[in-house]
Design a protein around this nucleic acid. Sequence first.
DNA 1: CAAGAGGCCTGTTAGC
DNA 2: TGCTAACAGGCCTCTT
Length: 273
Amino acid sequence: MPELPEVETVKESLKIRLKGKKILSANVIYNNIIAYPEVKDFIKQISNQTINDMKRRGKFLLFDLDDYYLLSHLRMEGKYFFKTKDDVLDKHEHVTFDLDSGEELRYKDTRKFGKMYLIKKEDIDNIGPLKDLGLEPWDENLTSNYLLNKFKNKKLPIKSVLLDQSIIVGIGNIYADEILFMCKINPLKHCNLITEEEASNIIKYTKEVLEKAIKMGGTTIRTYSSVDGVHGLFQEELLVHGKDKGLCPKCKNNISKIKVGGRGTYYCEKCQK
DNA sequence: CAAGAGGCCTGTTAGC
DNA sequence: TGCTAACAGGCCTCTT
């Protein structure tokens, strides 16, 4: 799925097209996309809500409506397209929104992993997934002490805890590999052994990598695209992720591919001891 | 409690 | 070439 830079890119594209438009009605074709509330309530409550703004929190898209937040998590392959009522429904389009502009916003998700939540604004801190999220990468409270404190009572591989959305939000499998390469940290290193300097570097390079990826419209490796099928460009900048047939850009050693916490992981054994 | 495996889904690709 | 198994950028739940 899209990681933070991809969600940020989608959010900006949707904001341009959606701001000020009203959702007249919604049609749910595949019920499991709607995580909360029940589908009939979801449809009833979202009708006639205006999209006042688009925001992002971690990997969630937030549609800022009159009385609710619509949270949309794209998971692995969720995408949005603008079409009209007359367009034939694609096999993998599972939720559609009729807009007062005459357009139809369609959510497409081949693997059906994505989730939507419609939460009353006053409940946003108590109901739904946002309450469990950690710090945004640019939050001033994200310090090396914060990380060391989160890491000290676990011994999971550092790669796995970088993917833990209750610590820092927005990092996924691609950027975790890139960040650890830039920090020269082995992805298998137990997180309780991370030093203050390493923690500080993780913060620095997390921001650097994500900022650059946002500027380039995200990374399109397999199936990611922002809105209406637009691709990102950051894949050209990747240093190690997906490069198991390539060489380390620093030392020209072969890049290794292993599994960490069940996820494909790419790194340089020489640079990342 | 932490940590690992399994599950959700479908499409593509690697390997025999 | 054709089939099958493994894999894919995420995260929740169950088991140990």
